[in-house]
């Protein structure tokens, strides 16, 4: 549900007496766009491919289409301290280094199996598993908090309207 529509429902709940505030006018799902360019275009592409390898497109959109790499970039740029930023950047660089070493091509040029093998090796490496778990954790978080997933797959309810204390566990849960 778009914010303006949500607000309209609020207004309806009041009997339509509430006029919508000015700040509701420009809202849409694209209003939160990427302003930061923390990573270089090359790094950005690499990060998108790493995220897409972790959560690929299937019959539903994957990480790249949902802009998960942009979310990760935001978090790295704005929420991490310098030490973690450097740790993340060098980890990202190591992905390409590993792909070059193993398959003599960039990570982005590798096929899915090759990419997974690169990331699995990182996960198994004492020096690199820290980065891998960081990028995987951020990818999962970015995916699960994306509009697509929250509206279509996990069905986020902003306004449940109730609390039932004791209901049977439904089979789908």
């Amino acid at each position: 549900m778009k914010r303006r529509a949500a607000l309209k429902n609020v207004a309806v709940a009041f009997g339509g007496l509430v006029s919508l505030p000015a700040w509701a006018e420009n809202w849409n799902e694209r209003s939160v766009s990427l302003s930061s360019s923390y990573f270089s275009p090359k790094e950005s592409v690499l990060l998108a491919e790493v995220a897409e390898t972790i959560i690929p497109v299937t019959d539903t959109p994957g990480a790249k289409e949902l802009g998960v790499h942009n979310f990760i970039q935001k978090i790295v740029a704005d929420c991490m301290d310098k030490k973690n930023q450097e740790f993340f950047s060098s980890g990202l660089a190591a992905v390409d280094t590993a792909a070059q070493k193993k398959f003599t091509k960039s990570f982005a040029s590798c096929d899915t199996g090759q990419r997974i093998s690169v990331l699995n090796e990182m996960e198994a490496s004492p020096d690199q598993k820290g980065f891998y778990s960081m990028v995987k954790g951020l990818t999962i978080r970015g995916y699960l908090t994306s509009e697509y997933v929250m509206t279509n797959l996990t069905h986020y309810e902003m306004v449940p309207g109730h609390y039932y204390g004791c209901v049977p566990v439904s089979p789908k849960k």
């Binding site: 914010r3 935001k74 704005d78 929420c79 908090t145």
Partner: peptide
């Protein structure tokens, strides 16, 4: 009425 995905950092506070 901001949805979780509409927050720039999905709720997390920037380091600054």
């Amino acid at each position: 009425v901001t949805n979780p995905w509409e927050f720039e950092h999905r709720g997390q506070l920037p380091l600054e």
